[in-house]
Nucleic acid binder design. Structure first.
Lengths: 329, 329
DNA sequence: CTGTTAGCGCTTTCAC
DNA sequence: GTGAAAGCGCTAACAG
């Protein structure tokens, strides 16, 4: 546990001033003679010098930190987006501070405050789902304080909050899927919480594409278990189900199967998002594909904007028909 | 984009000294009179003051940062562990800087160096799989420099590197699975890269439990596609396959099915890890269960140790028999 | 109990 | 081209 070498140590070892050492080691436009440059580099190398990021941040009044707030990193939807954020971040030499917000809206508020303390350049909030109006308001307020400090806020998949937004074309994608299933007479929808704009858009789009009203609407948690539980509420005779997310659909399929229903012979099932694993379900799941990693990268790019007004990036979707609806249409 | 209020701003607003403001706002054991305390709190509240984490770190010579380095956050094995790390971190008021290391061993080296610059308290490295000896050596060296600075290093699922270690009982778990499949005469193993100790332990344990040699050993990438591709190399007549990870097994099942094989009637399949989604495969996959989130929390706890020698935590495993091997045994 | 003051390690004018 | 010195915002002795 030796003390980390400081820039001063390097300067002394190289026989130059602090300023010179700083100029050669940490990108400055000022010129330094080749001789001194090499001496400093050699000294830094020998001492295994690494600049103290905190001290730099303090002196420079800026950091390379970006916050990534997501509902649950273990959920493939979120980890897919996170993956895109991480790869874009490393390409831009940014560091990512990550946190799960879970079901608690105030968790996001708390993390936003921490990020403000860390002087993060930006924060990316992915699909925080808040249960209460009051919580949502506190969140909006926290975002306001965060951006007031000069930081950038990007929300992914959840429009309506201040800041930049990356949203899929939920309505359009769902409409295409509805059209795909429009041949079915008895259609059920398993929807996540109605308060979520995402859910509403997907349901509305699906209905528009279907062309006739669904026979059943089941509301459930936006999780695998939510979908699993919803299986019990699908009426006999239903021939197709649209589920507002793949994660839910995955659970639903298991639940339907336990009821003795065959997919797609007895009942077709389609989801939304295109998380990787659904092509390995049996049958593989029809879905509306989202470029998850790409959404993450785009969010990071928005996060880098120096200033300017809020922008919204709409992500196009793509209908992917697989075996879970093969007898449909 | 107003300037963030500083502690000095708060002190002035409250009419107290910098020191007093510091004492009430940022936990000190020193006592402050109730009057001043309240005045400071009120001022801080009014200004939306949040301490500059960098300045604190510099003055305190310590941070609340922990690094989390994983192969690929989009892989459910890693995101499961990450989830445990995050929940343990938030409970201890630690911040997590995350990065994917991918296939490149030097990515881990680079991130470790960045973490050193950030004066992170500890780093958790999850299953970095390096291809070359030289890279591994550079990694060990980077870990050496990291810990020399007084930071703690924890490796998860990958013994052999300096620092603390969290490893599952791969051998024991695989042995139980081998015993479960010992009734099969023609057994194949689909193994990840042989250079990985994890893979070797799982293969060795499985063989010990099986009690007789397997008929085929297929080597593949430690990924879904690796497993998928391996399906082509399973000889006809094989009645059971052990795959060294669930992610690979997931791909393998799809590949086998495309060959027209029924699971488990024609061929039983078993994996390892118990990632959440495998219970929703059809048939649900038999596996050796690992408490992924728990492993992550344990890693974080090891990361918090003040000092002392390296420790190793062995994680017990549990055989979970599901339908993919139901005709086996 | 409260205030003064010297740093923490680095960047950045401003002189030389 | 190089160096001296003044901070960046906060903590922690050290005096009162």
């Amino acid at each position: 546990m030796t003390r980390q070498p400081t820039l001063n140590d390097v300067a002394v070892a190289a026989g130059v001033s602090l300023a010179t050492a700083s100029r050669v080691l940490n990108g400055s436009d000022r010129k330094v003679s080749a001789t001194l440059h090499d001496r400093v580099m050699a000294a830094a190398q020998a001492l295994h010098y690494t600049a103290n990021a905190q001290a730099q941040a303090l002196a420079r009044r800026s950091t390379a930190l970006v916050g990534l707030l997501l509902h649950d990193i273990a959920d493939p939807y979120f980890s897919g987006i996170a993956s895109g954020v991480l790869s874009a971040a490393v390409a831009r030499d940014l560091r990512v501070v990550i946190a799960d917000t879970g079901a608690d809206p105030d968790a996001a508020v708390a993390h936003l405050s921490a990020l403000r303390g860390e002087r993060a350049r930006a924060a990316i909030l992915v699909g925080s789902r808040t249960t209460d109006r009051a919580g949502e308001k506190r969140l909006a307020e926290a975002i306001g304080q965060f951006t007031a400090a000069g930081a950038r806020m990007v929300c992914v998949g959840q429009p309506g909050l201040p800041g930049d937004t990356v949203v899929p074309d939920n309505r359009g994608g769902a409409r295409a899927l509805g059209a795909h299933l429009s041949g079915h007479a008895r259609v059920a929808i398993v929807a996540g919480p109605d308060r979520l704009r995402t859910v509403r858009d997907r349901v509305a789009g699906f209905r528009a594409g279907l062309g006739h009203p669904e026979t059943t609407l089941v509301s459930a948690e936006f999780s695998r278990d939510g979908g699993y539980g919803a299986a019990a509420h699908i009426p006999d005779g239903t021939t197709a189900v649209f589920v507002t997310s793949d994660v839910m659909a995955t659970g639903l399929c298991t639940g339907l199967r336990e009821r003795g229903l065959r997919i797609p012979e007895d009942i077709a099932v389609a989801g939304f998002d295109d998380i990787p694993v659904i092509r390995d379900l049996h049958p593989a799941l029809t879905t509306v594909a989202l470029p998850l990693a790409d959404m993450g990268s785009q969010a990071l790019h928005l996060a880098l904007a120096e200033d300017g007004p809020s922008r919204t990036v709409t992500i196009p979707t793509r209908l992917v028909i697989r075996d879970s609806t093969s007898t449909g249409s």
